[in-house]
């Protein structure tokens, strides 16, 4: 499988905006987000077989973006730089409730193991349903509920809601 220029341009036009939007929110940096977009789409060009059998490229890219951003957040060299950016972004956080939530989420992500960090992103940033998170993580809805309960415990908060019935 290869991606010709026209097909790649179409994929980029449709999918790059959501990859970039989520990366900017997770990393708090346009420049870092641009690198994530570039890395993911170059990878798509170089190894198109990785998404050849995916029913939803959007879902595939959500997962890939999340992991790429979490890796960057954990990267020791990036951490100080991103923390400085978060501090600068705090000035306007009261003007935008979502910005406030994203700032809190970024702080949280640095302290979580991989699976909990990913579930936090999907639950708080993307506001996915339990079913959607379960499909992305390849686990059961019940396990998603367990992860969110553990997350709430770590945060010292009450779970927002029990695992809802199907």
């Amino acid at each position: 499988m290869t991606l010709d220029r026209q097909r790649f341009e179409e994929l980029y036009r449709v999918h790059a905006p959501s990859v970039r939007r989520r990366a900017v929110e997770l990393l708090g940096s346009e420049a870092e987000a641009a690198e994530v977009v570039q890395d993911l789409f170059l990878s798509m060009l170089e190894r198109p077989q990785q998404f050849a059998n995916k029913s939803s490229l959007t879902t595939f890219l959500y997962s890939a973006t999340t992991h790429a951003c979490l890796n960057r957040l954990r990267n020791q060299r990036n951490r100080a730089r991103l923390l400085a950016l978060h501090g600068a972004a705090a000035h306007d956080r009261h003007a935008n409730p979502r910005a406030e939530r994203v700032l809190q989420l970024r702080a949280l992500l640095r302290e979580l193991p991989d699976e909990l960090a990913a579930v936090a992103v999907y639950h708080y940033l993307d506001e996915m349903t339990y079913d959607e998170i379960a499909a992305l993580l390849g686990c059961s809805r019940r396990h998603v509920g367990t992860l969110l309960s553990r997350l709430a415990q770590l945060r010292g908060a009450q779970p927002e809601e029990a695992c809802p019935a199907s």
Binding site: R98, R101, Q104, L105, A107, A157, E160
Partner: peptide
Amino acid sequence: MSSELKRTRGQTCVSDL
């Protein structure tokens, strides 16, 4: 850790995905 983090949309709402 912060305890203020909450989502705005419910389980019946439309996710970003």
